[in-house]
Design a protein around this nucleic acid. Sequence first.
RNA 1: GCCGGGGUGGCGGAACUGGCAGACGCAAGGGACUUAAAAUCCCUUGUCCCCGUUGGGACGUGCGGGUUCGAUUCCCGCCCCCGGCACCA
Length: 835
Amino acid sequence: MEGTYDFEAVERKWQRRWEEAALYAVRAGDSAEKYYCLEMFPYTSGELHMGHLRNYSIGDVLARYWRMQGRTVLHPIGWDAFGLPAENAAIERKIHPADWTWGNIRAMRKQLQRFGFSYDWSREIATCDPSYYQWTQWLFLLLYDRDLAYRAKAPVNWCPRCRTVLANEQVEAGRCWRCDGEVELRELDQWFFRITAYADRLLEDLDRLDGWPERVKVMQRNWIGRSEGVEIDFRLEGSDTLLSVFTTRHDTVYGATYLVLAPEHPAMGEILTRSPVADRVRQFCDRVMRERAIRNESPEPLSKEGVDTGLRAVNPLNGERIPIWVGNYVVMEYGTGAVMGVPAHDQRDLEFARQYGLPVRVVIQNPERSLRAEEMTEAYTAPGTMVNSGPFDGLPSDVGQERVAAYLEEKGLGRRRVQYRLRDWLVSRQRYWGAPIPLMYCDRCGIVKVPIKELPVLLPQDVDFTPGGRSPLERHEGFVNTTCPRCGGSARRETDTMDCFVCSSWYFLRYISPHEEEAPFSRQQASYWMPVDQYVGGVEHAVGHLLYARFIVKVLHDAGYLPVDEPFHRLLTQGMVVLGGAKMSKSRGNVVTPDEMVRKYGADTARLFVLFAAPPERDLEWSDRGVEGAWRFLNRVWRLVRTKSEEWAGGTEGRIPEVVDPDSPAGELRRRLHQTIRRVTRDIEHRQQFNTAVAAIMELVNDLYAHLDVRDVPMAVWKECLDALCLMLAPFVPHLAEELWEMLGHEGSVHQAKWPEYDPQVARAPQVTVVVQVDGKTRDRLEVDAEVEEQELLALVLHRPRVAKFLQGRRVLRTVHVPGRLINLVTAGDDRPNE
RNA sequence: GCCGGGGUGGCGGAACUGGCAGACGCAAGGGACUUAAAAUCCCUUGUCCCCGUUGGGACGUGCGGGUUCGAUUCCCGCCCCCGGCACCA
């Protein structure tokens, strides 16, 4: 008889049975409570990596657990299938992007199935499938109709390597998220989604997302970057042109000693015609803009540079004439592209002022220590008392802030304003492998929508992928030329495709009714299934995907398609899988693939290891030894069940005796079992800490082994323990659990059995270990009745020699008793009179 | 700079609401089984000190303080690591 089980045969056997029985197919039920368990769907790169294995193993534990708890569980999977790598494959390897993608899907589907995840495969979707992207296009038109999609010329991030534009969320430290190449700024006509219109709601509703990790919420808050301030209208001297500035420190407006404009500022034309040093200013602007175009953002801020235009602006509050400068530290994308320089109370302004010898004027006085403008090397940014501020003198700065704002609004010199860091979402891409934007340009009618009935706008197959400056679609006459549905004249199609994040911003809704032909999803089904109860995925999507999906759901909610306005109730962001402390990558050569693991140890071992080696949120250090440990454990379980089930082969009926003495080995075993059930249930359900759940099961198995040779444990008790053991293992190692469940004589799938319940009476220990401390130091421990009273316990304790030893020459002042845990004797020495 | 998260044995990590620090696993050492090895099963394993032994004691959760009968856990000040944001006015 072998000492290890044949994982290959076992896993193949049960995967086939599950498939035949369509065990994980689900329909909206009306009686059972639903549970929508979702993991971030994979990009169709062609291979599954350890991150996927971890992601999907976590999701599968939850899906299987809740199914056993009686919920109606929706657990779908699909493919994020549009995107650049497919097109690059076409260019490099002369494969059509569609063939490449569908081939990858086939391979990855096989890999996923090999791991035995409990997906409802009848709901599989792919974003590159016309029956899917038809509805992505529908979504675009919905946003267009609601004035949330617009076309604008704007400086946008351009990746020269990928030959396309990128959203702000796809630029990381000035580099492209995909190819890591440097990103340039280009002035282009592009399609945007007006996500800024939802900025406030996206921000406020974060407070409702109790089931989200704090750090993701913080990242979204930072990204949205709301700040309240005032726009103040300075006037260009000798002109009616207003130079408005945005500031959050309007209480310091009397301290403005100059004004700085961004080089791209719209008033620059007028300034250049009037400036006595126009040439210098022009040269400066050109240089700064050129430098910015090659956005090689170093981590260090650029040194501040500027040039005096020789012109003046008028401060609307005190009528003061202050010089207008152009500076490289002012950006056009934020606020108004102009700032007032208040060197005394802003560090950047102070640096700039000192560099160019501009005056510094204190207008907020530090109540602690009087500020002197000439001596300042650090701006004073804390609250204080207003000075040199005309009618506002003497006010605390926070009050002054209110007054200045009110005054400006009253006189029509400015207005309160909320400013966001968040920009609109750039969704155009100049590439082929994406969902075409369903619009056309008619000479007579302008921009015209493709009628919903005519969707999808299909991607043509026969396209020339040779790299060029523009989208391959643009060179496809058959695609571009079309007829205007409004006037019947000739029209040209939009050739930009959509950012693949548009596709992934609603895919969780398509799973709900994936075969629906009349709509992106059934409203009725969506109101049953939404929101997603548990979303699992990597934290790298914190400000991209997760923000977009929230935005799109709010739009659909507002348009009446969804009852909910947040997509994901709980979010679990799992850590990376690392080896030697570094992320696995081909270039580092430290990659271990899930396929290798399955081949060597099987799916159950691989899954168990990734769940056991670290808590889900933390990074997981890969360890081949650790995998072996998981494999050993599973065999240990298998041998145990096999031994016992053979022992009672032929008849094991028998009941657990009505009364099992809690002090007998059988009673002890049952107690450990019920304690384990309590721990495992809590760890999965409330703490989502699967490593400790597995550890608890391992402890139970160790206990069962320790009782293997104990004679007077009734078979029925063994049966109870082993049954529950299988049930608890089922979410983690679904194949082996089935096999053992069958060995134990059960009919039907363990995954359709009920999760075990613990009996608090059985779990309760009649005797407990109480720790005895003297002055907070542990000196002894003793077994006592769980219910023991303090007085009785104290009497016992005082007679213990180990305790008495430490009480010599001291008297007990008081005792602290934590029932069932500890008793602490607080003493004072007799030899120290003052105590 | 600001905001999050983290720092515990040789390693991955436990410790619920302030109550036995180091569960579970890995590694290491020892024993049983075996002709032998592998596999398996059992035991030991934070550091230091005292003791011939049974045993006993001190220290110990990044560092320094504090609160408390008692602190990995709470508070104050610092150091280091990871992540996010950053001329954002």
